[in-house]
Design a protein around this nucleic acid. Sequence first.
RNA 1: GAGGAUGUAGCUCAAAUGGAUAGAGCGCCUGUCUUCGAAACAGGAAGCUGCAGGUUCAAAUCCUGUCAUCCUCGCCA
Length: 586
Amino acid sequence: MNSTIQKIREQFEQALVAAFGSDLEGTDPILVPASNPKFGDHQSNVAMSLAKRLGKAPRAIAEQVIQHLDVSEFCEPPTVAGAGFINLTFKTSYLEEQLRCVQADPRLGVAPIEPPKRAIVDYPSPNIAKEMHVGHLRPSVIGDCIARILEFLGYEVLRLSHVGDWGTPFGMLIAYLREAYPEALKSDENLDLEDLASFYRHAKKRFDQDAAFQDAARLSVVQLQAGEEETLRAWKIVCDLSNRTNQRIFDLMGLSPLIIRGESFYNPFLPDVIEELDRLALLVEDSGAKCVFLKGFTNKEGDPLPLIVQKSDGGYNYATTDLAAIRYRVNVDKVDRVVYPVGAEQTNHFAQIFQVGKRAGWITDDVEFVHTPLGSVLGEDGKKLKSRSGEAIRLEDMLNEAIAHARTDLENRLKEEGREETEEFIKHSAQVIGISAVKYADLSQNRTSNYVFSYDKMLARQGNTAVYMLYAYVRTCGISRKGNIDFEKLGSDCPVVLKEDEEFVLAKHLLRLDEILSIIDADLLPNQLCQYLFELSQKFNQFYDRCTVLDAEEPIRTSRLVLCDLTARTIKLGLSLLGIPVLERM
RNA sequence: GAGGAUGUAGCUCAAAUGGAUAGAGCGCCUGUCUUCGAAACAGGAAGCUGCAGGUUCAAAUCCUGUCAUCCUCGCCA
């Protein structure tokens, strides 16, 4: 309906000029969805906003506007209500026609963006020396979702896994391995990441307690950056191993394939970054470190804050890498948009590197670099989620626990209903439901706020959960099974006939998919898609409850089958954009 | 000290460039399964949108102040 709304908006603009003269050319008609269904489908709030400017009463302005407004192709005659609201209601015949179009469209009425654009979603992936933990849940899930939505909208999307495969933690690890297990670096075989994870903890302990060890760790970083052979060899082994392990978790989560382009990828470009910043006279040496002093950022003394791009020991840090990445993405990848779904605590960091990127002329007005800040995952105590021993919870453990919860729920349910299902069915269903529950719980809340992680709530039988939507989809499948109807063979020109309130409500909601996706394209808040799908499922359930499908008379029966098919396809597509599959039965 | 985020029903959260009576879900109370799968549906109670000012026809939304919680602030990422 985006194009319809656009046409109505144009009609408003013409009507405003016709009614009040060319001064009002380009006036925004303030056309928004109706605040309440009883007012119709859309409303224009323009009359109130013009009252002062035109020196007239809003209601009089509204009356004058609708006299010149021709939306008869789409809507019933507009009405004026309240303070001067202009209310629009779609014609039934127009809705029915739109439904036929959507029915025939594999994209369900969502037009691809024109012209196509290139986008990068930067997955803030794990440090390669550590296992994935709870902190990686939101970036992975939300990043994957944003990538899927942008791709569907017509972007060419590069999913870049910006793994931490370089830098100080790595040096610390190598230093510790050299110190405690020198032989481990010489053979590839008996290393697994479980060992490295505990190695990391030990190394961190050593690092925190011993200044000499800190020096050794920093030296290892320098050796790594210098390309010292043995160090590089150890590095490669660990990277491969780590990536394999992470891939297993990504597969379990159902994430789209990623391009691994870690921090090390940008190593060759780091000197260029420094050089160019220097040439642009942005670089200042301070206490031996090369810095760019930032505008709008101060330290505790009120002095300008530096962004350090080369440390006093000659090493680079993550700001340098991120700047090199910005430069590469603009110059080589030639992207229009780069999205960083990263924790809100890094807001300053991104503001800083974007500022430097702009001042260096890499980020121009026609390229959008955007940090989409993410809130934290909290425990039931309202504090950052941690294991009982105070460490970060392993992501894989969380996922498996969700699957186990889902399995228990399903088995109890089968017992209650006296159903027999195969092990394969139970296993597959539990996995889909468990993983989907975790992802949906994460996606359904505004990404900027913290949320409380609870297996019981995310897997609840009632409420705004993945299960609710999966069940609505299962119900559509039930109709197709029971009626022995293949939705795909319904054809693309089946007449839709809207009569009952529930049919209208469902139909209008179905037609809003493209509008919702456009909004998400702009603000990158996937929770709005969750909200849309939840409401769609609710409206379908109401329809299902009150409008019998299979026993209805023709042509109502076929019309309702089309509504079921459209609902099923919309849920399936919507969930797929969230990274969630559907089940035919559950 | 500076910058930023958050604060909405008992709980978890929505609210599209400021719009009509601030909405859902959970929990609580009451109904509905011989009828397309009840993991569902219908109804009810529940709010000074942290607090105080201001801007305007209109404020959860914008501005100022204030309180609370959280994050960040020179060589970790």
